[in-house]
Write a protein that binds this DNA or RNA. Sequence first.
DNA 1: CGATTTCTGTCACACCGTGCCACGAAGCGG
DNA 2: CCGCTTCGTGGCACGGTGTGACAGAAATCG
Lengths: 192, 192
Amino acid sequence: MVTRAEHRRSTLLRLSDAAVELFEERHPDRPTAEEIADRAGVSRRTVFRYVETKEDLAFIRPTLWLEIFDRAVAEVADTPIRDRILHGAHQISLDIDADPEPVRRGLLVASRSPGMAGRYGAVNRRWVERIATEIAGPDPDADTAFRAHVLGSAVMGVIDAALAEWVEDPRGRPLVDLVDRGLDHLAPILHD
Amino acid sequence: MVTRAEHRRSTLLRLSDAAVELFEERHPDRPTAEEIADRAGVSRRTVFRYVETKEDLAFIRPTLWLEIFDRAVAEVADTPIRDRILHGAHQISLDIDADPEPVRRGLLVASRSPGMAGRYGAVNRRWVERIATEIAGPDPDADTAFRAHVLGSAVMGVIDAALAEWVEDPRGRPLVDLVDRGLDHLAPILHD
DNA sequence: CGATTTCTGTCACACCGTGCCACGAAGCGG
DNA sequence: CCGCTTCGTGGCACGGTGTGACAGAAATCG
């Protein structure tokens, strides 16, 4: 007997893998929702019970990272902002290292398909907001919120650039190192 | 007799205005492509000769800003990066001031519609790349490109935050001032 | 002017994303 | 273990999207 949560999670990852495979095989065309559904062993209708558009299936894992980040940040809530972000990146890296290939291939597919830039941009923006609230702290005034948004975008830029480099060479430097190096560029302005 | 360039431009802006109006009227529902086409006085088919998706019609003006930015930056090509960006922002502000309402309403519509966050994210990303290449200069090495991407995201964050504040109160401080203030946060790290 | 290129509307088509309904399997209190 | 409820699913139908193909009008060019 399988719990509902386990079942949902495994179906989601099966859909994700099927989608990434098919987006690779069909490039530059795109698979239909039905093909993805068939390969994952579910009906077309069910696909849209897991994601809003089929393109979202390429970013399932990066989307799940938000939860990891939340938990990680909560663990070190009373440390400086830079440490919190690094700790979050570290926990995410551990998750990636457990099985890097699907992540890498998903990000590659995403970066090549123009139609996906939009959906990936949406994930990106959610991350910016998340990091900005982390920097702003509770009840920020207008100026603090403004500054937090700017720094949030900058940190997201670090993560983006780090991921882009890591995707090209997954056997190279660990993702955390790349993020660490990127944050160095922001060191003069990144403080609580 | 109307030149082709003029004709295309006026059709595009007519589509943009029709779309913004209808997205406002129909909120939280969304107008169909056919309704937008009818109001703009063209066929549904023609809409998709101007934009890839109907949601793009809310950002027509921000998209056109890229051209203004390119021209402005070229004018002051030999000044420090901060001045170039400020000059670009200044030229864009002049364009906005000529007719601010459509811009403001478009951005408001865009910020409220979840489906649009994605498409707006795509525009956002094009801006990040554009600014990053401006910062990186010609033939950047890997480290320079990495740093440029980080700073590009940060600058985009400034513009984003400035636009968000300006949209809320268009009679408040001019957009250039808001961008200027935002760039102050990046001053310690923003140099050539 | 005629030849050519660009823009348009019409039509047809595959596909997307969603509401609705019925059914089976998981969860839960007794 | 048993009934009742809740959740996840497939099937179907439907309005809507975005695109290829084609033919005609309008501009550009020589």
